[in-house]
Amino acid sequence: MTEGGEAILMEDVHKRYGEKRALAGLDLAVRRGTVHGLLGPNGAGKTTAVRVLATLLRYDGGLVRVAGHDVREEAARVRRRIGLLGQHAALDEALSGRQNLEMFGRLFHLGARGARARADELLERFGLAGTGRTPAARYSGGMRRRLDLAASLLTEPEVLFLDEPTTGLDPRGRGEVWESVRSLVDGGTTVLLTTQYLEEADRLADRISVVDGGRVVAEGTPGELKTRAGRDRIDVVVRDADRLDEAVRVLPFAPGETAVDRDRRLVSAPVRDRMAALAETVRALEAAGIEAEDVALRRPTLDEAFLRLTGADARRGEEAAA
């Protein structure tokens, strides 16, 4: 382990599937003993990133280190230190929960007796002690997810990857998974968690990277991200499309934060002081003699904040391409 204490490090990582760029220069640094959220919409590249980190997928370029080891050069070392809960169940569903855990335990070289004891312990801890010989295929979705999670915790890994751990679970199942993650982190495990739920990232993660199009578009603590992306916005709809550019010039918004939608004749910007911004906007429009169809303040929801963070990147990408 390096003195920097980064349990997970990805630098400028690229991965393409044929023409499709799944990772386009992804950067990620996760301190030891913390929970890091990877938040992004469908197809953002979350699973691809996790599979690269878990040594399951080759990448095309960049640097990837887990627990201080290069995933390409020292895959065996990495595998001894990680646990993986993939997006889809990675279980032998023809076998019972106990059979699964014992098998994986033996493969982690816990020995026959060690594997059996560990299986007992985990079945108990995840509320699966009564499942007997029932094959995992007949478990409920939540039970299967818990068994999968138990399998990824067999060795109390140094670094744990959780790819959408609670998707498809009911609120109770979700709460149980959250509980387990928290107690793990208390034990010193580093967790990388992907999710589409802001609430989940908010509750569990110390820091969040918002991913879109295979890149990180925003990074920070949940609080930072909320204030950065989730600020109130003011929307101004100009009557005459020809005067849109003029409106952008006269309005008292920071140029970098102003979004323009030509089709809707809309200028939009985040604001700090709602009332002052409203007054300034109306004054500026009047002074320039620009007629507004609508001026409105909006308070974004958490989900909108997330959409804005990821959508903002899409716009930036278009501008770069133009």
Partner: peptide
Amino acid sequence: DKGVVDRFRSMPMTDGA
């Protein structure tokens, strides 16, 4: 198809076992 191979491959087991 089942994904269990993903778990095997992410574990420190012998190649090809």
